[in-house]
Design a binder for these strands. Structure first.
Lengths: 197, 197
DNA sequence: CCACTCAATTTAACACCGTTAACTAAGTTT
DNA sequence: AAACTTAGTTAACGGTGTTAAATTGAGTGG
């Protein structure tokens, strides 16, 4: 009886321990330093154990990427339930994305294959990423009810500005203070949202 | 007499052969597949020879990055000498950047540590990258003569939109046709330039 | 209590990686 | 001819992702 319960729980603990360790190493030493053996050492198992939970390093990274998009989705969902005004919604969603990239840069990196991280699973096949796309597109649509194609264009533009600024801010953070980049980001996203009217 | 001339020329040939091979492998198999041994095999030498030309894989990548920025600089310079109108200049510069990323994606990747490429030399310490920044800033200034801080803000915005769209277009190229992304890019850059007035 | 099974886990191995030290062979200088 | 320089190689170190085989250990039927 107990074993039936304890075994699966341990499995889940080990699994999340692997994910947690991978992210922790990436945060401290960068994704190029994340190795299966190092993860195994940290969770006090031998390397092959990791393969009992993830078929390869690639699917491990894919899981972290999906976690990231799911987290983003939840935050966007929260914003939408919090505000009624579509303009406010899109702006707040933009700010959430900035905050996410700021607080968990290593996850943001693996989501977009930045800074040496490489997850070979195509990002557009990720269900969790598509869910994020849908929720933002829906927000834009509730704002400007146009044809699907137009919405996709606007979404692509919004995504580009947001992602472009976040990426450059990360890349230049030692030259241009992050807070200064954030100020420009806020202004740009506000203007983008305003210009949608 | 001959040796004094032939030796340096051969040296230069080998050196550029290494660079060419690295880019070629990256283009065909991605940066994660670029290894010193594979490069050495291709140029028909043993691996340690590569270290006679580059202190490490990292400085090899740094050289390719610098080559990329120098190429971009030359193109920007050409545009500036070709057109007088600052508006036209900035727009054409934007198009050159798109074309560069389209034709040599593997170089664009190493310039920004995209898609698994990792050059640990900080990008903002690259002289060739700073030269590119200066020439674009100058173009914006000839357009809107404002304080240096304002110019840097505008440059950051221009760079973000351009780079963000290029990056996303590359990432989504199998879902959203590149030509379609290019259309949105042209429209966005045109609008950015127009809004500068 | 012994033998057996079965699952969990580890060890050992393979082929690769970046990098360096030691070595070889050829040519040049003295 | 002997010593030195140069170009290039082989071999090695410690690391990587990954897999097959060996090992451990606990529970079970005889």
């Amino acid at each position: 009886m107990e074993t039936i319960e304890r075994k699966p729980r341990n499995r889940e603990q080990i699994r999340s321990g692997i994910l947690k360790t991978a992210k922790s190493i990436a945060r401290q030493e960068g994704w190029q330093a994340v190795s299966i053996r190092k993860i195994a050492d940290a969770i006090e198992y031998s390397a092959p154990i990791v393969y009992e939970y993830f078929d390869s390093k690639d699917v491990l990274l894919d899981e972290i990427r999906s976690e990231g998009f799911r987290h983003l989705y939840q935050e966007y969902d929260r914003i939408i339930n919090l505000y009624r005004d579509p303009e406010k919604r899109l702006y707040e969603i933009s700010l959430v994305q900035w905050e996410f990239a700021r607080q968990q840069p290593e996850i943001y990196q693996v989501m977009y294959n930045l800074g040496g991280a490489l997850c070979t699973m195509p990002i557009y096949e990720s269900e969790s990423m598509q869910a994020v796309s849908r929720i933002v597109c829906k927000t834009i649509f509730s704002f400007i009810p146009k044809a699907e194609d137009s919405i996709k264009r606007l979404y692509f533009q919004w995504w580009s500005i947001s992602h472009g600024m976040i990426m450059l801010a990360m890349l230049l953070k030692d030259e241009q203070p992050f807070d200064q980049s954030e100020q420009i980001y806020r202004e740009s996203m506000r203007r983008f949202v305003r210009d949608l009217r």
